[in-house]
Design a protein around this nucleic acid. Structure first.
Lengths: 339, 339
DNA sequence: CTGAAAGCGCTTACAG
DNA sequence: CTGAAAGCGCTTACAG
C-alpha cells in the first residue's frame, strides 16, 4: 500500500529530501545541484518508479492540478461531447477533471460547488443554473462559464454561442424555404441562452412581417420527462393546425418534436417544416434528416480550457467573453415545402 | 484564499484542534467530550462555514473519497449514460468521480491509471483495454471492471452483460422473422466482449442450420473513423448482395450501418433486416426503427458502485462476477420481411 | 553546492 | 474529559 516517497530516494541516494525535491522538480540547475548527484537521484527515482503524492504536493502548494467541470447533464450528447474535448485539452496541461451534473437544479449545483471547493480544485468550468452568481463569485478561483452566463454580471469569463444569431438564422432559413406560420417550442427557463433564442426567433419573424403573436410561442416546463414533452408538444400541434413549421429551441425538444410529429402522422418537411437548435446524430440520420443550427463543440471545449489555463498559469485576470457563431446545417426537414 | 481551518475553530472555542477534530468527526461521545464543548464547537464551525480540507484529510487517512472512472469514450452515449449513473450513485456515498477516456488505446489507458494512482483515488471502475491486467493488478486498491474483463484472470470484480446471450437472442429473432442469410459486422478487436458476441452469432446460425461461413463475418479495424466504417460496410454489402440481414456488434457500427444501407438505396427491414447490439436514441427514432439488444444501463451503473463501495467500506475482498441479461427490443428493422 | 527545519491541515495514538 | 505531539509526503525560505 505504502508508495515510494521522496525520503526513500533520499536515503538510497545518500542525500536529503530537499535535494531530491529540487532535482525531481527540475530545479537542479537553478539550485546548483551537481550533475553527479542529479543523475544519481534521477536514476534511483526511475528505478523505484517514484510518483509524487499529489495530495501532499497539493496541500503544500495549494495546487491540485484538478479542474471542476459542472455541466447540466453529462448524459446529454452536447455536454458529453464538450466533456470529452475538455478532458483531452486539460490533459495536455497536466490537469484532470472532476465532473458533476446539476440537472439545472440550483441546490444540486450549490452542493457540487461546495464539494469541489473543499476538494481544492484549481479552477472551474461551470454551466450555471439560475441564481448561482453569488456562489460562483465567492469561489476565489479561476472560473469560465459555458453555455450561458449572467447578463448582469460582467465579471465572469464565458464561452457561449451566439444564441440570438443562431435562432435568427434558423428562422430566416425557414422563411426562405417558403414556410410562413412558424412557431417556436422552447422551455419555460428564463435563462439568458433561452431568452436570446426566443428573441432571435421573434426578431426574424418581425423582419419578415410574419405573425409573431403569443400563440406562436410555446413554452414547456423544463422538468418534464420525455413522455411529458411529447404529450405537451402533441397537444400544442393539435390545437394549432395552421402552423407550417416549428423551431425547436434545444436538441432534446427537437427529438421529442420528431416523435410528436410522427405520432400525429404528419410528414416532417412537407406538412410541417422543422429546425432544431443544436445538432445531434439523430438529426443527421433521421429520414427526413433534420435541419439544425449546430454548436461548434470542439471549439467550445478548446476555448474553455484555453481561457482557464491562461488564468491559472499567468495568474492574469483578463475577462474574456467569447461568443462563437453557430452553423446552419440545411437538411431535408426544411427542403420539402410544396409551394 | 486561505480557508477556515480546524485551528481557527479551536482558537475561537478555546479548545485544542484535537477536540475540534473529534467533535466534527462525530466522535464526540466516543471520546467523551462534554455536551457543552461539543455544541460550542459545532456552532462555531457552522458560523465560520468550516469545510474540512480534503487534501489534508486524505494525506493523513489515505482516503480521498474519489473514484477513478476509466471508460472507452465519454462522448459515446453508452458510456456517458453509465457515467451519469455512476456519478449519481457515488454521490450518495460521498464519493466524487475523476474520469478519463482510453479510446481503447493501451498506452492511453496506462497513462490514465498512473495519473489516477498518484492522485490516490480510493477505487477504480475500469473499462479495460487489451493487456491491461498487469497494470490493474498492481493498483492495490479496489477495482471493478465494466463492459469487459480478462478471461484468464479470475481475480477482478466485474459487471458486464451477457454478450453471448445477447447476440444469440438477436440472431434467433432474425431467424424467427424469416431472414436466412445473416451476416455479422463487428470489429477486429479480440477482446472478450466482442469475441462472445461473435460466438453467440455463430452458435445461433449453427443451431438453425444456416450458413455460418467466413464471408458471413466481416471484421472492421476498430480505429477507423465514421466515413471509414461507412465505406467498409458499403463495400462489404456491395460484394455480398445475397445477404438478407445484418447483425451489428456495436451501436456505432449499427449507426454507420444505417448510413451505409441507405447510401445503397436499400430498404432497411425489407431488403435487409438489421439488429444492433446496444440501444441508442437513433434506433428508436429512425424510420424504420431499429431492433436492438439493449444493455441495462441503470443497473450496470448501480452494480458497479455497489460492488466498489462494498469493498471500500468493508474492506472485504469478495470477488463478484456480475453478468446482466440484455433485452431484445423488437422494432421495424426486423418486422418487414416479405415472405 | 547541500541540508535542517518549518509548515500545508488534518487525524489519532498516547498521556494525563 | 481534554490536549500535546507526531506524522501523512511534499515544498521552500533560510542558513551555511
Amino acid at each position: 500500500m505504502k508508495g515510494i516517497s521522496i525520503k526513500d530516494i533520499a536515503q538510497q541516494a545518500g542525500v536529503s529530501p530537499t535535494t531530491v525535491s529540487f532535482v525531481l522538480n527540475g530545479k537542479g540547475k537553478e539550485k546548483r545541484i551537481s550533475e553527479q548527484v542529479s543523475k544519481r537521484i534521477m536514476k534511483i527515482a526511475a528505478k523505484l518508479k517514484y510518483k509524487p503524492n499529489q495530495l501532499a504536493r497539493g496541500l503544500r502548494t495549494g495546487k491540485t492540478k484538478t479542474i471542476g467541470l459542472i455541466v447540466e447533464d453529462i448524459a446529454n450528447s452536447f455536454f458529453a461531447n464538450v466533456a470529452k474535448v475538455v478532458e483531452d485539452e486539460a490533459d495536455k496541461y497536466g490537469y484532470k477533471v472532476l465532473f458533476g451534473s446539476t440537472e439545472d437544479n440550483e441546490e444540486k449545483a450549490k452542493g457540487l460547488l461546495e464539494v469541489l471547493r473543499y476538494r481544492q480544485v484549481d479552477g472551474y468550468i461551470i454551466t450555471p443554473t439560475l441564481n448561482l452568481d453569488k456562489e460562483i463569485a465567492s469561489l476565489q478561483k479561476p472560473v469560465v462559464l459555458m453555455d450561458r452566463y449572467f447578463p448582469n454580471v460582467e465579471d465572469f469569463n464565458y464561452v457561449v454561442v451566439d444564441n440570438f444569431q443562431g435562432a435568427y438564422t434558423a428562422v430566416s432559413h425557414m422563411v426562405d424555404q417558403g414556410y410562413k406560420k412558424i412557431a417556436i417550442i422552447t422551455t419555460s427557463s428564463t435563462q439568458i441562452q433561452m431568452q436570446l433564442r426566443l428573441d432571435g426567433f421573434v426578431q426574424a419573424l418581425k423582419e419578415h412581417d410574419l405573425p409573431a403573436g403569443k400563440n406562436m410561442i410555446k413554452r414547456l416546463a423544463f422538468d418534464l420527462d420525455r413522455p411529458g414533452f411529447i404529450q405537451e408538444i402533441t397537444k400544442y400541434l393539435q390545437h394549432n393546425t395552421d402552423l407550417d413549421a416549428i423551431f425547436f429551441a434545444t436538441n432534446y425538444l427537437g427529438i421529442c418534436g420528431i416523435e410528436s410529429i410522427r405520432g400525429l402522422k404528419l410528414q416532417i418537411g412537407k406538412d410541417l417544416g422543422m429546425v432544431s437548435f443544436d445538432d445531434h446524430d439523430i438529426f443527421r440520420l433521421h429520414s427526413p434528416s433534420i435541419t439544425c443550427v449546430a454548436q461548434p463543440v470542439e471549439e467550445i471545449g478548446r476555448r474553455l480550457i484555453q481561457l482557464l489555463i491562461e488564468e491559472l498559469d499567468n495568474n492574469s485576470v483578463t475577462r474574456a467573453h467569447v461568443v462563437l457563431p453557430l452553423e446552419l446545417r440545411k437538411r431535408e426537414s426544411t427542403m420539402m415545402r410544396m409551394k
